[in-house]
Design a protein around this nucleic acid. Sequence first.
DNA 1: CAAAGAATCGAACGTATGTTTGAAACGAAC
DNA 2: GTTCGTTTCAAACATACGTTCGATTCTTTG
Lengths: 220, 220
Amino acid sequence: MTASDTRERLLDAAERQFSERGYDGASLREITQAAEANLAAVSYHFGSKEDLFVAVVARRVQPINLERLRLLDQAEARAGERPLEVEAIVEAMIAPVLRSGADGPCVLRMVGRANSESAAPTRRVVEGPMREIRARVRRALRRALPHLNERELSYRMHFTMGVVKSVASDQHLLHAISDGQCDPQDLDGTIAQLVPFLAAGMRAPSVERKRRASARSRRS
Amino acid sequence: MTASDTRERLLDAAERQFSERGYDGASLREITQAAEANLAAVSYHFGSKEDLFVAVVARRVQPINLERLRLLDQAEARAGERPLEVEAIVEAMIAPVLRSGADGPCVLRMVGRANSESAAPTRRVVEGPMREIRARVRRALRRALPHLNERELSYRMHFTMGVVKSVASDQHLLHAISDGQCDPQDLDGTIAQLVPFLAAGMRAPSVERKRRASARSRRS
DNA sequence: CAAAGAATCGAACGTATGTTTGAAACGAAC
DNA sequence: GTTCGTTTCAAACATACGTTCGATTCTTTG
C-alpha cells in the first residue's frame, strides 16, 4: 500500500460526487465514505475541500490539454504549409474534452458548475493552461478562415467552447429529446455530428459589414 | 401594500442570489435580508427553499416560451406556404432566452446549475413547457432542412440549445477571451453573431452516410 | 527489534443551514 | 370599534457541514 492509495480513492470518489451534486452539494462525509476513508483524510491529504476540488479538476485538465496540443501538432504535420482544415481544428478543441468523460464522470460538469459557484479556485486550474490552447487555436483558425475578423473569431470560438461544455454536461438531455435515437454514451457518434456542425458555423460568411449597416439604419 | 409585495421582493432577491451563487450556495438568510423580509417569509409565501426556486424559474420561463412561439408565428406568417428560413427558426429558439437576461440575472445560469444539482425541481418547470417548443421547432426544421434525418435533427437541436445555454451562462468568458473586443452586454450583437453561426451549422450536409461507411471500415 | 515518521482513526468543535413555532402587528369587513 | 384572516416577526430547533485534535495504527529506516 503506497503512500497515495487512499489519496487516489479520494480523488475518484470526489470526482463522482462533485460531478453529480456540484461543489456545494457534495459532502466530504459522503466522499470519504465512498472512498472507504476517514473524514479527516481529506484535510490530511489535500488540506481542504476546495483544495480537493482543485486536485480533482487538475488531474483531468492536463491530459485533455495535452491531447489537444497533440491533435493540433498532428494536423499541422499533415497540412504542411497549407492552412489547417477547419474540421481538424474544431476536433482538436472538442474531442479530447468529450472523450475524457468516457471512463467516468465528465470534467466539464464540475468545471461549469463551479465556474459560477466559486469562480476563484476553478479558474486557477482551468483558465491558466487554457490560454495556450486558445492562442494556438486562434492562430490556426485565423489562417483557415481569413474572411473573419478578430471579433468574429472570438465569438465563434466562444460558441464552440460553449457547445462542447453544454453537450458534455447535459448528456442525458440528448437521449431525452431524441426519443432514444441518439446515444449520449456514443462519444464518437456525438463528435462525428458535432465537428461538421461547428465547422460549418465557423465557415459561415462574415456578418460584420451587414450588421454595421443595419445598426446604422436602426440608429437613424 | 398588496398581498404580493414582499413576495415579489423575495422573488427578485432570490433570483439574484440563485444565479450568482447557485441553488445550494444561496442562503435564505441572505435572500430575505436582501429582500428586507423576515426569514420565515419564505416558508410562509412559498413553502420551502425548493419551491421558492421553482417559482423564481417559472416566472421567467413562461414569458420566454411565449416569445418563442410568437416569433415562430410571425415567421410562419411571413413565409406563407414556404418553409421557414433556418435563421428565423434559430432566432426564435435563442433570442428570447438571451434577451431575458437583459434586465437582470439570466435564467439559464440558474437552470443550468440546478439541472445537475437537483434535477427534479428544475425539470418540472423547464422541461414541461419546453416540449411544445421543441416539437414545433423540430417540425419547422424538418421542412426547412429536408436533407437531415431525425437523428441529425436531434443532434443539431441539442447543439443549438446547448450553445445558447452556455453563452448565456458564461458571458464573462466572452469578454475575457476577446480581449474586450466583444461586449457580452450587447445581446443584439451576440444574437447577430450567433444566428448565422448556428444556421450554417444547421445547413451543413448530412453526415450519416459518411459515418456509417467509416464505422464499417474501422470495424473490419 | 526499536525508534521515527507517515497515515488513519474516532470524536468533538464551531458554524451555517432550512424549517418551525407562537406571538405580535396589520388590514379589511361588519 | 371589534373581530377575523392575513402577514410579519424574533427566536429557537434540529441537522449537516468543514475543520481540527489527540490518540492509535501502520510502514519504513536504522
